[in-house]
């Protein structure tokens, strides 16, 4: 579904991703683990089309199409979604209004009619309920005054509502307590299917205890230094990154 070939990326002349090659097939869950500053977040930002990165060489193909020249919103319309490590606060816009605008923007780009208001409200209420969020959560301003856990839950709520083909979870587990981690893992498992793919970016094993990845890659200095299956997570947890870097 997503294929990264020979990708090198710099920020202010500093090489962050170094000739990276990575393929995430349809229906697979791939985890990238690595120490701080290894380039994990750069990778997720470059996939989703964030500004400020210089692509020196290589490409990213999504369903066979090179997406590097596509805007972030075009990528979203194609079915790429990123759950942010630090979701942005926007006071003045109600969460439910934002969610409907997001859904309808994607639908419009795919030549689909806007969502039916009633069924949309039913769906977001159902998802919110599953994530243990009360109704007032939807009328509050977007991420404004939300706790860390609520922000991450809101990212998963959007994931379940938007139903993208491919999602990057950029440290979705950071700052979560055990209960919130369980809820969020359950949400991700509900999203995961044979028709979509997930790229999980994390530091720790604990999220991967709940969501078993098909492949695990250890990342350092902007490239993959070790690949394996979920057993690699245990080795990493025992020996630490030092063993590999």
């Amino acid at each position: 579904m997503l294929k990264i070939s020979n990708l090198s990326v710099t920020v202010e002349d500093k090489l962050i991703l170094d000739n990276l090659n990575l393929e995430i097939p349809k229906g697979k869950k791939v985890a990238i683990m690595g120490p701080n500053g290894s380039g994990k977040s750069t990778l997720s930002n470059v996939i989703s089309g964030k500004f400020g990165y210089n692509i020196k060489k290589g490409n990213i193909e999504f369903e066979g199409k090179d997406i590097l020249d596509c805007s972030a919103d075009d990528r979203a319309a194609m079915g790429i979604y990123m759950a942010f490590q630090y979701p942005i606060e926007i006071p003045g816009i109600a969460n439910s209004s934002f969610l409907r605008t997001a859904i309808n923007s994607i639908r419009k780009k795919n030549n689909l009619e806007p969502v039916n208001t009633r069924s949309f409200l039913e769906e977001i209420n159902n998802i919110a309920n599953k994530l243990g969020l009360d109704k007032s959560f939807l009328s509050r301003d977007l991420n404004t005054g939300f706790s860390g856990g609520e922000k991450k839950k809101n990212e998963i709520l959007q994931l379940l509502l938007i139903k993208p083909k491919f999602c990057v979870l950029d440290e979705i587990d950071s700052g979560l307590d055990i209960d919130a981690l369980k809820v969020i893992s359950k949400g991700i498992s509900e999203f995961s299917s044979k028709t979509n793919s997930i790229l999980i970016i994390t530091h720790y094993q604990r999220l991967l205890d709940y969501i078993k990845p098909d492949e695990v890659h250890i990342f350092n200095d902007g490239k993959i230094i070790k690949s394996g299956n979920s057993d690699l997570v245990k080795v990493l947890e025992e020996k630490g990154y030092k063993e590999f870097c």
Binding site: G49, D73, I90, P91, G92, I93, F98, I106, K109, I162
Partner: peptide, 26 residues
């Protein structure tokens, strides 16, 4: 903020409009 909204499907122009609206709604 523009990027966050774009990543959710809003065009850059719509994202800026949306942020202006948010600023006013406050």
């Amino acid at each position: 903020k523009v990027f966050y909204l774009q990543s959710r499907g809003l065009s850059k122009r719509d994202a800026i409009k949306y942020l202006v609206l948010a600023f006013i709604n406050e």
